[in-house]
Design a protein around this nucleic acid. Structure first.
Length: 418
RNA sequence: GUGAGCGUAGCCGAGUGGUUUAAGGCGUCAGGUUGUGGCCCUGAAGAACGAGGGUUCGAAUCCCUCCGCUCACCCCA
């Protein structure tokens, strides 16, 4: 028997209400903040990601789905959404549009990882990017928008973690200080951290091991090494967040796994959460567009994991609106009636009324049971009597009341009710 | 990639070597007289017990391998 590949899931009809709800809220929030949707291909040239995310990152070295097409071109399934948006920005000359250009996407992303709660090989991201302006007001707006998205869904008890990791001019100084600090304590580090010290020193900060906690807590802070430009940028971001009454935790240990971030980085997570609980994160990436071949262009963005959002909605018991059902079920008895039912169904649908017609030739009892389990508000019954009288029986499935109506009367009643 | 737990019908789940030709519940289907749902009642279909191999007179129950799920690490949304 075939099964969905490891780390992938089918989103079944009974799950769809959650997803449609989240998608609708995402689109709503984007409209509110002036973001326009951009859909990019699921696959891109592999180099786009290795250049943007970083050659040495885990995403690139061990998680990307890379393959050659028949012409031998190296392609990769999109592991994240920012690089493709930047590629499209450059490719379509969006630097000629009024800046910043605000774009959003709802798209699957692919990473070859060991599946876990809230972590899949195919997952869905909602992301938005504001490209072309370095204004710190945009950083705070993006953070505000992220929070707006989560709270509009009804999610509760969220925290925003905020940090600034500087830019290419001040970060090297900080990395040096961080390395120096850790080198002195290398003997006390866990094995993972020993390799981090060489490979990716920033990641030392969010080691979860007991023994490394104390060391990380007291490590040098990136915010103490910011250049004047980055410092004032960060100050303005926090000032705006305060003026928006948006609570945040300054977290000097917050770093992100993608190389392109500069200055502001942030993450949103539920208060009570497991390991994979971050609902979304983002930050500024002022060097990325240039790195991908565009003009020097500042940008800021964020992405949310839709799967985790849905998971959290369920965990917090937040009700989502049910998906609309067809209003009417048509039951029929006998061949002639079935013919009438086919025509009636088509005619009601052409009026915009949703109809499920009983298929097969089952007993009326069975047909009404089906109507009941579908949850349609009405059932129409067509049998010999109705055909003889040129009328239809309309049964209200909630009250159980029935009336005998002509087709015209029926249309009037149903048209009014919907 | 590492470590731990788990895997019985569509779903939940009993059963841990021999009256198991594998409970029960939900769901599905059909009935409970002649054309009527939701409650109730009856009946039916549906599983060689994740896959493959092994131990044994005998395995869903023990062992091995693989696959998958869950959790933690790694990493990230």
């Amino acid at each position: 028997m075939y099964k969905a590949p490891r780390g992938t899931v089918d989103i079944l009809p009974e799950e769809q209400a959650f997803w449609r709800y989240v998608e609708a809220k995402a689109a709503e929030v984007c409209q509110l903040y002036g973001y326009q949707r951009l859909d990019t291909p699921v696959f891109e040239e592999a180099a786009l990601f290795t250049r943007s995310i970083g050659e040495g990152t885990d995403i690139v070295t061990k998680e990307m789905y890379v393959f050659k097409d028949r012409s031998g071109k190296q392609l990769a399934l999109r592991p994240e959404g920012t690089a493709p948006v930047c590629r499209a920005y450059i490719e379509h000359g969006m630097d000629n549009l009024p800046q910043p250009v605000k774009l959003y996407y709802l798209a699957p992303a692919f990473r070859y990882e060991r599946p876990q709660a809230g972590r899949y090989r195919q997952h869905y991201q909602f992301g938005c990017e504001a490209i072309g302006d370095g204004d710190p007001a945009l950083d705070s707006e993006v953070i505000h928008m992220a929070c707006q998205f989560f709270t509009s869904l009804g999610l509760k008890e969220l925290t925003v973690q905020l940090n600034s990791i500087g830019c290419k001019s001040c970060r090297p100084e900080y990395i040096k200080a961080l390395k120096g600090y850790y080198q002195e304590r290398a003997a006390d580090l866990c094995p993972d951290c020993k390799t981090r010290l060489e490979k990716n020193p920033l990641r030392l900060l969010d080691c979860k091991r007991q023994g490394c906690q104390h060391i990380a807590d007291n490590s040098p802070r990136s915010t103490d090494y910011l250049c004047p430009e980055c410092r004032s940028h960060f100050e303005v971001v926090t000032e705006f967040l305060r003026s928006l009454d948006l609570p945040f935790n300054f977290n000097h240990r917050l770093v992100r796994g993608l190389d392109y971030y500069t200055k502001t980085v942030f993450e949103v997570q539920p208060l009570a959460g497991g390991a994979q609980s971050a609902l979304g994160g983002g930050g500024r990436y002022d060097d990325l567009i240039e790195q991908l071949g565009g003009k020097p262009t500042p940008a800021v963005g964020f992405a949310a994991g839709m799967d985790r959002v849905v998971l959290t909605l369920k965990k917090q018991g937040i009700p989502v609106p049910p998906l609309p059902l067809p209003e009417v079920f048509i039951a029929h008895l006998g061949n002639e009636a079935k013919g009438e039912a086919v025509k009636l169904a088509a005619s009601l649908r052409s009026q915009g009324i949703g109809v499920v017609m009983a298929s097969g030739d089952r007993s009326l009892k069975a047909q009404l049971r089906q109507a009941n389990s579908l949850g349609t508000g009405y059932a129409i019954i067509i049998g010999e009597e109705e055909i003889k009288n040129r009328k239809l029986t309309l049964r209200n499935m909630v009250s159980g009341e029935q009336q005998s109506l002509t087709p015209a009367e029926l249309r009037a009643v149903l048209g009014k009710g919907t």
